[in-house]
Each structure stands twice: as structure tokens, then as C-alpha cells.
């Protein structure tokens, strides 16, 4: 059976849903082995067994997190050689893509990013040009490296749990030319769902005029994540992490509510694959109305609070 290597970087206390998705996808393509960087708790090791990992590969060096990307790619390249993997799966996060990029050069392997599904023959499907095309791509090389977008696979444990062997992979971070991370500041958590995999996103733009209160109120009534246009993040009304678009996050939730956002091409690039789009804007000529399933020509300061109150009322 084909060998599939999954990379899980710093799993923390429990495996994230996206990691469970990778493991589930890996089983559909062959026999999964897992390369884990960072601390490996008993709970995480148990989930790896539950998801059918045949082997768990660990780096010999402990300081991979102190450097940017390169030593992680070196670790993974050795792990891939060790397991004879024909497919390597990683997260589609910015760092996941960079590890994939470097790994691919080390393995002479084709790399495909932003993958939403993979056929049994290794053909990967993804959308390009800001969601205007869907494409099928394939690596021509013996090994393929794929970064998988979250929320496209339903996580499922293996029929029978495995008893993975642990293998140590030689890697010495110091020998790879890499930038060193000299300081790390943790950001405060918002308590709201994560923007990239939220089911519902409420996003505000310049029309919020410095006050994101109504956006947050509606988001909380819906259990949604908060997004923003670059105009709003540049103005400092909300953190840059909330930016949706070409240079921010790409989201495709079930529902995207756009409030006081004109719908510039760079904004659309990050949200036009949302299932349902609702727009609230006082200018009937705003381009956002061209892609909205439901558009309201109106003032965000009237419409958003009224909708939030109505949702709270109906939810009781």
C-alpha cells in the first residue's frame, strides 16, 4: 500500500480538527505515518493511534521552533525518506505552505497548495484566480506534496486503532541556513470562532466609521467570526488578523455578511466563494451588490443592531 506522510506541527494539548482531517484523508490514500514537531502529549499520541497512524516520527533536535521553516523542511524530508512516502500532506497555513515549498525542492517533488480534495490516483482539486476557476492538478514526480485546506474532509477515526511505533529522525537545526526567531509575543484570544474556518463571518468596512460594536453584536448573536476590509484594519479599528481578502484571509463560510464594505476586487478575492453572501451598504451602486445573494440598501447602524436583536429574540 502507498505510504502517506502527514506533518503535524506543534499539536499542543489536543489535535486540531484540521489535523484530524489530514489523518482521515491520508488513510483514504494509503498507510499513514505522522511526523510530529513539538511536544507530543499522551492525549495526542492516543488520537494518532485512534486515527490509524502506523508510525510516529520525531525530530532528534528539540529547537526547530526557534528557526523559520528550513529545519522543519529538513526534518520532514528525512521523515519522508525514512517512510518511503509517495504523498506528503500538510496544513494549508502560510507556514505549512512554506515547509511544503522547501520540502518539495529537497524531495524533487511537485507541490500543490490550496487543495480541497484528492482522488485515489493523486489528482488534487483546487480553485484558482480568486475562486473563478476550479482546476485538477497532478504532480509528475514520484513524490507529491499537498497542502490541504481545512473543512473539506469529515474527520473519522480508523476502523481499528493502530499501535504506532515511534521513530527518531536525525536533524540538526544548526546546520541549515535559517532565520532565527528572537522574540515571540502571544496575542490575546478573541473568544470568537477562528476566522478561516468559521461557519458564519460578519465583516465590517470603512462604513463602520470607527465603531465595530454593531458588527461584533451581530457576530455574537450568530456565533460568527468577525472579519474586516483592509480599510478598517488599516484604520486600526480592528486587528489586522481580521482582514479578509487578497492580502488577508481567504474564507468560504456558509454565510458571509458584508457591512459597510464596497466590494473592491482585493476584498472579493478573499470571500467570493462563500456559500451565501449578504451585503448591507447605503450606496446602491456598490459593487458588493453584484455578488450578494441578499442585499440591503441601508445604514449599517440601523440594520445590524435590529437584526442582532431579532435573532436574540427568536433564539429566545
Amino acid at each position: 500500500m502507498a505510504k502517506v506522510l502527514v506533518f503535524i506541527d506543534n499539536p499542543g494539548a489536543a489535535l486540531k480538527k484540521s489535523s484530524l482531517e489530514l489523518l482521515t484523508l491520508a488513510r483514504s490514500l494509503g498507510e499513514p505515518a505522522v511526523a510530529v514537531n513539538g511536544e507530543l502529549t499522551d492525549a495526542v499520541a492516543a488520537s494518532l493511534a485512534e486515527y490509524g497512524a502506523a508510525a510516529v516520527l520525531r525530530p532528534s533536535a528539540q529547537d526547530l521552533n526557534d528557526f523559520l521553516v528550513a529545519p522543519k523542511a529538513a526534518f520532514l524530508a528525512n521523515a519522508a525518506d525514512n517512510t518511503g512516502a509517495g504523498v506528503v500532506l500538510l496544513d494549508n497555513s502560510p507556514e505549512g505552505k512554506e515547509v511544503a515549498a522547501r520540502l518539495a525542492i529537497r524531495l524533487n517533488a511537485g507541490v500543490i497548495t490550496d487543495v480541497v480534495s484528492v482522488d485515489a490516483d493523486g489528482t488534487a482539486h483546487k480553485s484558482v484566480l480568486a475562486g473563478s476557476y476550479t482546476t485538477a492538478c497532478k504532480a509528475k514526480t514520484p513524490v507529491s506534496v499537498l497542502t490541504i485546506k481545512a473543512n473539506n474532509v469529515v474527520p473519522e477515526p480508523a476502523a481499528a486503532a493502530s499501535a504506532p511505533e515511534t521513530v527518531t529522525v536525525e536533524v540538526s537545526a544548526g546546520t541549515v541556513p535559517a532565520a532565527r526567531i528572537t522574540a515571540r509575543e502571544q496575542k490575546a484570544a478573541s473568544g470568537r470562532p477562528d476566522l478561516t474556518d468559521a461557519r458564519v463571518v460578519v465583516a465590517g468596512g470603512r462604513g463602520m466609521d470607527g465603531d465595530f460594536g454593531p458588527v461584533e453584536e451581530l457576530a455574537d448573536a450568530l456565533g460568527a467570526a468577525v472579519g474586516a476590509s483592509r480599510a478598517a484594519t488599516d484604520a486600526g479599528w480592528i486587528s489586522h488578523d481580521a482582514q479578509v481578502g487578497q492580502t488577508g484571509k481567504t474564507v468560504s463560510p456558509q454565510l458571509y455578511i458584508s457591512a459597510g464594505i464596497s466590494g473592491a476586487i482585493q476584498q472579493k478575492a478573499g470571500m467570493q466563494t462563500s456559500k451565501v453572501i449578504v451585503a448591507v451598504n447605503k450606496d446602491a451602486e456598490s459593487p458588493v451588490f453584484e455578488i450578494a445573494d441578499f442585499g440591503i440598501i441601508g445604514d449599517v447602524f440601523d440594520v445590524l443592531p435590529q437584526a442582532a436583536a431579532e435573532i436574540r429574540k427568536r433564539k429566545g
Binding site: 440598501i297 441601508g298 436583536a309
Partner: peptide, 17 residues
């Protein structure tokens, strides 16, 4: 994508939403 329903707020657009 094609445009869907567009309404103008007449005081109850939040409810209609």
C-alpha cells in the same frame, strides 16, 4: 456569481435579513 434580491431599508430591513 449573480446578484440576488436587493431591498431598500424601510425601517424593517434587519427583520427581513
Amino acid at each position: 456569481r449573480t446578484a440576488g434580491t436587493i431591498i431598500t431599508d424601510e425601517g424593517d430591513a434587519g427583520i427581513k435579513l
